[in-house]
Design a protein around this nucleic acid. Sequence first.
RNA 1: GGUCGUGUGGCCGAGUGGCUAGGCAGAGCUCUGCAAAAGCUUCUACAGCGGUUCGAAUCCGUUCACGACCUCCA
Length: 495
Amino acid sequence: MSSVLQIYNSLARQKEIFDPVNPPYVGLYVCGPTVYNDVHLGNVRTFISFDMVYRYLKYLGYKVRYVRNITDAGHLTNERGEGVNRIESQSQLEKLEPMEIVQKYTVGFHDVCRLFNLHRPTIEPTATGHIIEQIEMAKQLINNGYAYESNGSVYFDVNAYNSHNHNYGKLSGRNTEELIAGYRDLDGQDEKRNAIDFALWKKASPEHIMRWPSPWGEGFPGWHLECSVMSTKYLGTTFDIHGGGMDLKFPHHECEIAQNIGATGTEPVKYWMHTNMLNFNGQKMSKSLGNSILPLELITGNHPLLDKAYSPMTVRLLFLQSHYSSELDITLKGLQDAEKGLRRLLNAAQYLDGLCLSGETNTTTDDELNQLADKCKEVMDDDFNTAKLIATLYEMASRINIFHNDNKKCPVSEPTFTRFRDIFKAFLFEVLGIVNENEATSTDTLDKVMNLVIDIRKTARENKDWPTSDKIRDALKDAKIILKDNKDGTSYEVE
RNA sequence: GGUCGUGUGGCCGAGUGGCUAGGCAGAGCUCUGCAAAAGCUUCUACAGCGGUUCGAAUCCGUUCACGACCUCCA
């Protein structure tokens, strides 16, 4: 009856039973943002997905060390040393020091994380805080014969790596020769032995501000190196789960594997997980395409393509309603649907608290509730199928509503009821990370005022004084407070 | 060109070869002074064409369409 967690491993290209290296401990590493600009919604989708993974692993009882880095070292826009350092170019744009840019957008990123109710990682290391370790790994790769220095820069030697029976490209299904063929017509490869080689350390040009001393002169680390270093420093040479967006599979994660194997000789990651892209109008939402919506724009509704503001929890539910490995096209209709669905689930959660046992047990109902409770774990064990979990929660909500309408009586046994209630709440709040936003907006003061107003209106209604009753209702509606007349009285909700 | 993926009812979105996913919208109903909100019921689809099978949305082949990656991005 009890299922076990299975994870789709991008490296193996199949679902595998999750078998941690060192249970009950689990190491989870997720590639974090480059803090040179506001995070956009696509990043948020990935981080919500892994937040859910982290939450579910904890729910299963694992002790999870969750590492998510901050890339603040200012890498170049491509591996060939062309392009611009994104942090430095942003700093020129905003007339701020590079580290002010880093600070500003790191804080902004954390604000967004809080907004969407993301748990903080247990370690959030920065690339600039691990320059020494990165230099050490580059040295080790040189010593092991997998890297070479060239004109103050250090490059990973892909051919040397492959000739030692390693396979650069195994994660993303690339073929080294074809990659080289694709690069052949590109210029500016003089420093490298091979076009496919990638930078571990780059020599800083004179105008480059973010620079550190190294055995090869002043420079800065290559982008892929920080994740190799920080993941294994905190999680060990082989750890459990490494996650990130699909777009990082190549070259970033491919290079990470090569660096770790080259440095330590061991496979760094047991399970690779990749989240799919967030689309907008059928196209990938991406910084480079310039079609991204910022999280804050969505929350405030301040964007030409939005009809209104959507709450963070609406967005969170919308994202989790599709599987993490599927593409998700964000639309206004989808947001509206999710908004209603969220209300349905939260209403049910509220009704759940008011339910009590009827005293008699209907064995069919009892069984059905237990089956629904079982199903939550079963579907999550199947590669974190949140879409199915949410469908199951809707079914549970439907049951709750029926009981609520039936004098709030549940014809089931006490253990079944307790289990059903605990599981519904645990999966909705702990695992999916949904919070009731309306609860946060209502305060004691407001509650007292509203109770008074509702009481006055109740008297008016009892006297069939409809003008007064409707005036109160309309005026409150202007103030974005919605009155709901139910069978057993009136409640309110802040919009 | 290479690699990978997708095509499900009005819309979104899960689907392990046979058994109702679920949500939104629509329709009907309950509640109600009216309304709103909420709730209940209902609506049965799998791109085309072949094939395997007792049986296919699910496996195989093929055609068409779409997308992602191959260059910085989650």
